[in-house]
Structures are given as C-alpha cells and as structure tokens.
Amino acid sequence: MDKDQAIRIVVASGKGGTGKTTVATSLALSLAAQENVWFLDCDVEAPNGHLFLNPKIEAERKAVVLIPRIDMEKCILCGRCVEVCQYHALAEIGKSILVFPQLCHGCGSCTWNCSSKAIKEIRNPIGVLEAGLAKKGINFAHGVLTISEPMATPIIRQLKKWHKPEDGSVMILDAPPGASCSVVETLHGANFALLVTEPTPFGLHDLKQVIGILGDMKIPAGVIINRDGIGDNQVDEFLSQTEFPILMRIPYSTQIAGAIAAGNTLLDVSPEYIMEFQTLFQKIKNIIAENEPC
C-alpha cells in the first residue's frame, strides 16, 4: 500500500445488534489523539454513529438516483426504453411512458438508447448525506435513507465518493447488518474488515455469511467477540479452523450494556479500552502489511 493512502477499516457483523457501532465509535475515539480519523456511518437505513460521536453537521447534500423524465413532445412511443430497462421501471401505457422512480436504479440505459432524445435525467432524492466535525476532531459523515425509499446501496456509494479521507488518515466505516449488496458496497476498497460477533448460534451463522463475502473480495479480516461469556463456544471453535484471528474480546457486562443504551461510549465506562483499541489498531496495521503484495 502507498504510504500516503488512507487506511480504510470496515466494521461489519452479519447479525445486527452485536456491537458494530460500539466498536467502530470506540476505535475512532481511541485513535483520535494520534491519527487523523475519519468516520463513515454506512448503515444508512438505521444510522446510529452520530448518537455517540455527536457531530456538528456543517455540510449536507441530497443522495439521489438519476431517473428518466420523458418529453412526450419528442417521444415517438417506440418502446425501446421499456425494452432496455432491466428493472421494469418504465412501462408504455396507452400513449405515454410511465416511470416508476422506486424501481429505477439510475443506470442511464433508457437515456442512451432513446433515438429521439426524448429522455432527460432528473435527480430523484432518496436520502441525505451529512458531514461535520465530531467529538475529538473526528471527521464524521453519514447517509440517511428517506423513510419509504427502498434503495440503500446508492446512498452508500455516494457517501463514499463524497466523504473521501485525506491521505495518511484512518477511515472507519460502520457497515449495515446482513451480508448482501449494501455490505459489499461498504467493503469495496477496504484494507481491512473488523468483524464483530457474539458467541451465540445467531452470531456464528451470520458471521459465516460475512466471511463468505470477504473471500471473493480478498480483504483481510479479524474478529472481535463481544458479550464474551454468553451463549456457547461455537464461534471460537469455528474460528480456530479458519485464518481469521480473534483480535479482542469484550466480556458481557450489564454496566457496559446500560451505559451504551444511555448514549455513552464504551470508553466512557471503561477507559482502559482506549489502550486495547490502540493495540488493536497496531495489530490491524500489521495484518494489512502482511497482506500487501510484494
């Protein structure tokens, strides 16, 4: 890796509620004194990072999908746009072309294939992007999907393009739960995936789903076991058969759970974790270095 490039660490989990945001915010806050830290909350359906990092939002822009608007004066009703649209976002009904914005992925195919130049693309807002300085000088940004809009992935893609980390900085990306396309979009370009799980059958099942993505994307990864001590030891047994190291364990404690529920960070209740997260970052840097192609 180029020395000047930012290090991008994605915090993912598969199962929701395992502590992704707790880990991502704690890592960001622990490194803030020594690194130029950027934070990107990519869980645009249910973004929570701001609740713990308290950013002062200074910049805002709309997240959009470019949807077609058809000039019926020019349209010759040839039906080509309907035919090329793979998402069925267009229909030729009677003497007009109907557009279904929520089905449109904004690929532009209808526009390019319109022989009478009757299609103009307009910006259809599906959410907002917001950025600002947060606690300890962290460069924070998140995307927020508008309620009733279906597509999260374009917002994540636009958020990553909009809030690009400075050279030499460390960017922490908080991923959405699950293991589908929105997680892939978050992981795209990552140097490391930090997987947060809990030692339960659900935690293990969903961890395996995320690991399934990483193989294809060739991103090195390590695991944090949160709420260590509950459940069973299947996660440990599974990981011992893989190349993924367990980098940290956070024992279950009602005190921690209560503090985080109230909006405090892990570091507020247990400041000793600052050192742990700094050590974790060193381990991550070492793993990234080992995975560098010569």
Partner: peptide, 18 residues
C-alpha cells in the same frame, strides 16, 4: 417473463396486459 426477473415484475406484467 416477470416470473424469473428481478424487481418490477408487476410493471412488466401490466405491460403485457396493456
């Protein structure tokens, strides 16, 4: 054709009806 397509099967089917 909508039976094996991704999103928008309802629109595709309406198009067939039209």
């Amino acid at each position: 054709p909508g039976v094996n397509q991704r999103g928008g099967a309802g629109v595709a089917a309406a198009q067939i009806a039209a």
